[in-house]
């Protein structure tokens, strides 16, 4: 039977083949303007200013105290922002998910996300100045939370509201009180939402630029600002190393999200600025 199959293997359906061709322009475009640029970052990380191969960039970055402090600062701001977003966002999403009109109400919480983040940041900055709040770490973190809270609420709400009510009813039926119900059914079932919420807040927080500059009057520099600075100063090598570090964070967090069984709308969340 195999012999026959090979001998008479017919050309496949023609229209299938032509449809596949439709994606070729896009594939070519992505190759040129997404894949190759990323490869160039990788290459640049090993080049010095005269375009000769070197490992100095690595040495420069990993021995440069100020760069490492910026990285540490960014991670700290990222962790604090993410934690606050989770603490505020989880109860909020949970309450909303229980309400019949939650699907509409949640819209009002993610709506500000559609307004350019610079505008919102500048607005908060103007208010801080007007009410004499000193610009510094506190205002930066406020700004970050203000900007990225919707990114936490969106995936949390999606997962929480998609939890089948009958699980909760079953747990109650089996004699669990409300806190047990929450701990044993709702919380475990919303883990995927929590994880995607965390990454969706953490990654932009450490990589964005402008927010911390604006809200600290240039006193606090985060990793995103720092990458941009390096490239502005023409230090492509070190800048590339830092981009690679950023890329590593992105890939690790994406890996974690995938592992946690991503169900909620990652695309929705990241699409909003």
């Amino acid at each position: 039977m195999t012999a026959a199959a090979i001998a008479v293997s017919k050309p496949k359906r023609k229209f299938k083949l032509t449809k596949r061709v439709f994606s070729y322009p896009y594939v070519l475009f992505m190759l040129l303007f997404v894949v190759i640029p990323l490869v160039m970052i990788l290459v640049n990380a090993f080049l010095d200013s005269d375009n000769t191969l070197t490992l100095d960039n690595f040495a420069d970055f990993f021995t440069d105290k100020s760069s490492l402090i910026i990285l540490a600062n960014s991670l700290l701001v990222g962790v604090i922002t993410t934690a606050i977003c989770l603490i505020i966002g989880y109860p909020l999403s949970y309450i909303l998910s229980k309400m019949p009109s939650g699907r509409v109400l949640v819209l009002f919480y993610v709506l500000p996300m559609w307004v350019n983040f610079l505008i919102r940041t500048l607005a908060t900055k103007a208010i801080f100045i007007a009410i004499d709040v000193p610009l510094g770490m506190g205002t930066v973190i406020f700004g970050m939370v203000y900007n990225y809270l919707p990114f936490m609420i969106l995936p949390l709400h999606t997962t929480l509201s998609s939890i089948d009510r009958s699980y909760i009813e079953a747990a109650q039926d089996l004699g669990a009180d409300s806190s047990t119900v929450f701990l044993k059914t709702v919380l475990p079932l919303s883990v995927s939402g929590i994880i995607s919420g965390i990454t969706m807040v953490f990654i932009p927080t450490i990589s964005t630029f402008a927010i911390s500059q604006l809200l600290s009057n240039g006193k606090i520099f985060l990793f995103g600002d720092s990458i941009q600075m390096k490239f502005e100063q023409g230090l492509y090598g070190v800048g590339s190393i830092m981009s690679l570090v950023m890329l590593a964070f992105v890939l690790v967090s994406n890996f974690i999200i995938n592992r946690a069984g991503r169900k909620s709308g990652l695309s929705v969340g990241r699409s909003l600025w």
Binding site: V8, S9, K10, P11
Partner: peptide, 21 residues
């Protein structure tokens, strides 16, 4: 005609339509 046979023939009204879309 949505699938093509891997081998064999399909005859329609005396005419081989195995490869007809």
């Amino acid at each position: 005609g949505f699938e093509m046979p891997t081998s064999g023939q399909i005859i329609f009204d005396g005419e081989d339509i195995t490869d007809t879309p």
